[in-house]
Amino acid sequence: MESLIIAGIALVKVLILANIILLTVSYLVYFERKISAWAQSRVGPNRVGYAGLLQPFADVFKLLLKEDIVPTQANKTIHTLAPFLALFVAFTTYAVIPWGPDVTIFGRVIELSVVPNINAGILYVLALTSIGVYAITLSGWSSGSKYSLLGGVRASAQMISYEISMGFSVAGVLIFSQSLLPSEIVKSQSGLMWNAFLQPIGFITFVTAAFAETNRLPFDLPEAEPELVGGFHTEYSSMKFAAFFLAEYANMMIASALIVTLYLGGWQVPYLEKLGLSAGWEAIIQVAAFFTKLVFLMFFFIWVRWSIPRFRYDQLMDIGWKVMFPLALLNVLWAAVLAMLIK
């Protein structure tokens, strides 16, 4: 009976999270178009539903009706597998990210993340994002098109370069939390001890690496439209293309959630406990705080996309190896010194 209840709770959490992700991702596409329009003094989609709010559904409906084309040169198995690998990685990464404090419902303590107690939490996230590279590389490799191949190869080179600075930035965070558990990392940033304030260099390198890992501008070399047509997804159509599209935005959401968890204090609101609210209200405010931070970061991702032009490929590698990597190392030193001084 007990195990059944635990399984039931886990199922409910998965359902809630999956729905939140799908809804957020579809509206991210809408807001991407809206924000790009506003930044360019345009109006943006406003025909489908009130202020174009049904646009995401119209887009998905259109994509569903499209013909699914597989090039004759393509390796069919891998060509089909790749987009769903991308989706799989994008969705499973959310499992360890806590989106609220532990709450007590009907005398049962429930942690607000799908799999709360993985000891290797952050390593799990890093490992899965590394698998995400395979999705893009395989799609480029299996399409049998030079543009796709170039996009795929670029993606793998870029990911490897930026994963290093990302890993070292995370190391700085881990020095403070002394645990790989995401919930412990959040708790280590109580009050205004946010890692973003304690280690600004690490914050900047991590955010930059997150942009590179999610293939967002200014690092969207794998799908650079002017040179590579569509990059790794040139040969994809219909729902397979939609899967890549969804995965891209889901990745953006993970990256935002990770930045919030690692650097912006997760679901914590500074000095909330001094207000003396009841536990229930406190939990609600904290969950809301997590999603507010998440929304702001996702807005930041879109905002940057429409402000900064794409790097040239050699510039990208230069920044990755000659700037980000040394900065991330410097940050580890800084974090170590700071941790010794504070504790």
Partner: peptide
Amino acid sequence: NMFKPKYT
């Protein structure tokens, strides 16, 4: 630009 009047 996001808060400026639109030309559309």
